[in-house]
Structure formats: structure tokens, C-alpha cells
């Protein structure tokens, strides 16, 4: 019986996957009092090549901190999609349809969302990562919106109220989409 949730957030360097994963894991550890880890992989280039962060949330001690049996893989870029599509069994692959052209015949469950477009509609494409955080939270329920927002506020501490409000809004927008996806799955 699997007692832990394993989530990979992948894309290319610069898309904010590590921040997205960190805030999820932090919210789970600090606000939900669960065990949580965040490990990451990146290249020597700071931008443009494959990068990912692995979030594990569990009720028990987490030993190996990399995702080996994913529940959800998020792909924010074609490079990441190519790496995971068809290789993650029954886990859901969620991709950013603004960045990824999916395989004509995809193996396993896949779902695309126009995450960049959604972020632009909120007024700032830089909110893509927090929007993604919201989608993951709505879909997996590994963290609550309250915990997530505390983590967001802590990270953006010192920034203007406008920036904090925008990111909270981005989280809510993502959460809504994620919750819808979960209902679809049921």
C-alpha cells in the first residue's frame, strides 16, 4: 500500500520548477506537518536545458528523495515531455499545452492545460510556476490552499502587496483547474 505521493515537475531551467516544488514541499512539511522532500536536477546552463524537481510527501520517513513511482508528472516544456511521455505507466502526465505538442498517440493518461495563457490572462506570465503549484494542489490535495498561501506569502515576504496578491490569485486559478481535472478523473 503506497502511503506517499510522488510528483515530478519538469521543464527547462528558468521556468521556476524548483520554486514550485519547494513551496509545495514546504507547505506540506510546515503547514500540514507531513514528511516532505524536494530534490532537483539541473544542468550547468542556468537556462534552457532539462531541469526538474521531485516532490515527495508522506506520512512516513522518506529515504530516497527522488521520484521512482510517480503519481503525477508535470511537463512544462517539450524537452521534459519527450523524456517522460510513455514512460511513467499509469501516472498522469500533465503538460503545458502552450509549450508542448503532445504525441499523436499518447501512452498512459495525459492532459494538457494552457498554463502560459492562463498566467498571461492573470496579467503576468511569470506566475506560471505558482499557477502550476495551484494545479498540483487542486489535483493531488497534498497541500491545502491555506498552507500553500502561507508558503507563498513567506516566500514573497518584502515584496509589494500587489505581487503577493497576484501570486495568491495565480494559485487560486490553478487550484480551480486542478480540482476540475480531479473531478474529471473520478
Amino acid at each position: 500500500m503506497k502511503t506517499q505521493k510522488e510528483i515530478t515537475i519538469s521543464g527547462v531551467g528558468g521556468q521556476g520548477m524548483i520554486l514550485c516544488g519547494t513551496l509545495i514541499a514546504e507547505a506540506a512539511a510546515v503547514h500540514e506537518h507531513k514528511k516532505a522532500t524536494l530534490s532537483s536536477e539541473y544542468g550547468v546552463e542556468t537556462r534552457g536545458t532539462f531541469a526538474k524537481s521531485d516532490v515527495i510527501v508522506s506520512d512516513e520517513e522518506i529515504y530516497f528523495p527522488d521520484v521512482t513511482e510517480p503519481d503525477l508528472v508535470v511537463c512544462l516544456h517539450q524537452v521534459a515531455y519527450a523524456r517522460y511521455s510513455g514512460k511513467i505507466g499509469d501516472a498522469l502526465l500533465l503538460f503545458n499545452s502552450d509549450e508542448v505538442a503532445p504525441d499523436a498517440v499518447a501512452q498512459g493518461p495525459q492532459k494538457g492545460l494552457p498554463i502560459t495563457q492562463m498566467a498571461k490572462e492573470l496579467g503576468n506570465p511569470q506566475t506560471t510556476n505558482i499557477l502550476t503549484m495551484g494545479i498540483i494542489a487542486g489535483l493531488t490535495k497534498v497541500i491545502t490552499p491555506e498552507g500553500a498561501k502561507e508558503a507563498i506569502r513567506k516566500f514573497f515576504q518584502g515584496k509589494s502587496d500587489k505581487v503577493i496578491a497576484l501570486n495568491e490569485k495565480a494559485f487560486d486559478r490553478g487550484y480551480e483547474e486542478g480540482a476540475k481535472l480531479q473531478e474529471d478523473a473520478i
Binding site: A25, E26, A29, V30, A36, T37, L38, S40, I62
Partner: peptide
């Protein structure tokens, strides 16, 4: 690198 970059409680 595994432990240096690992984030946990």
C-alpha cells in the same frame, strides 16, 4: 550534491 541540495524539514 544529493544532500547539499536536498530540501526537507
Amino acid at each position: 550534491e544529493i544532500i547539499g541540495h536536498l530540501r526537507e524539514q
